[in-house]
Design a protein around this nucleic acid. Structure first.
Ligand SMILES: [Mn+2]
Ligand SMILES: [Mn+2]
Ligand SMILES: [Zn+2]
Ligand SMILES: [Zn+2]
Lengths: 143, 143
DNA sequence: TCATTTTCTGGAATCAATCAAGTTACTGAG
DNA sequence: CTCAGTAACTTGATTGATTCCAGAAAATGA
């Protein structure tokens, strides 16, 4: 787990000012991958005390634009954020409880798949979401 | 293009009551693949006259649940519907203008990809969205 | 120190989508 | 064909995540 000074360096390298809300958000997303904005707000407030929800929305947007965070929004879910960027990994989502797990990309580079017919598009990414049932929900259903 | 009686048959085979809003929605989605709810509402109203937006939402949900329509929602887009179901095809989306095109699946069956590590999930579908720039936006940018 | 960016406050607005209650109309049984 | 039961539709309100606003205060970095 990166330390506060690691987060400071990340922000500086991205030409972003170092502020406590930004460090707290970066830290929260590192500690809670695939968390939604509201959960992140809770973690940040537990860490820092009062922080406006607007600040967290602003920070999440700035960090995502800078490439420090990645935003994902599977169908039926609110926006979620993760700190694992740049490795083109994919996700598996439980249809029953919504839990999300990482799936390493066998290729690693984007785009990792080639379209059968690209219709003349210049494709830079292949996003893959696997849908299914997680072990917990499978067990619960079969009881 | 299927006719009104084709749509009636499709509804009956799905054990759904045959109503004019349902036929109009089915027809609109067949004629306008990947249209959003609001566009569909417009087409339906041009066809039938007054129809409540709630009716269109209800119909889209019922038809999707029955497997007659498929709902897709790429990031940054509202829900879109298409009548091409059951062939597990994929989509390519333009980051610039949002246009969506179909991409045939080389495999055809779901799930068409195997996750490198499924974390114990029972996976039933692999959803693929290719992101890039459409020919029109590529041309416009390079001018 | 100073100019600039970020955050705070605290509302208010958006907009797709859903809910609720009452009315209409489709359909299968008779 | 008729009719009742229920599914579907209408109308109007509401939700909920996210964004916008605007002025004041705080923090950053040069
Ligand atoms: Mn992930
Ligand atoms: Mn399609
Ligand atoms: Zn689950
Ligand atoms: Zn385009």
């Amino acid at each position: 787990m990166p330390t506060a000074s690691d987060f400071q360096r990340m922000l500086r390298e991205a030409s972003l000012r170092v502020t406590s809300p930004r460090i707290a958000v970066l830290s929260a997303v590192h500690a809670h991958p695939h968390a939604d904005t509201d959960s992140i707000l809770g973690v940040v407030r537990a860490d820092l005390g009062a922080v406006s929800h607007q600040a967290v929305y602003d920070v999440l947007r700035a960090l995502t634009a800078a490439g420090l965070l990645r935003r994902i929004e599977p169908q039926g879910s609110v926006a979620r954020y993760e700190a694992r960027v740049g490795d083109n990994h994919h996700h598996v989502v439980c249809r029953s409880c919504g839990v999300i797990a990482d799936v390493d990309c066998a290729v690693g580079l984007t785009p990792c798949l080639t379209a059968s017919d690209d219709h003349g598009f210049t494709i830079d990414e292949a996003e893959v979401i696997y849908w299914g049932t997680c072990p917990g929900c499978t067990t619960a259903t079969s009881l």
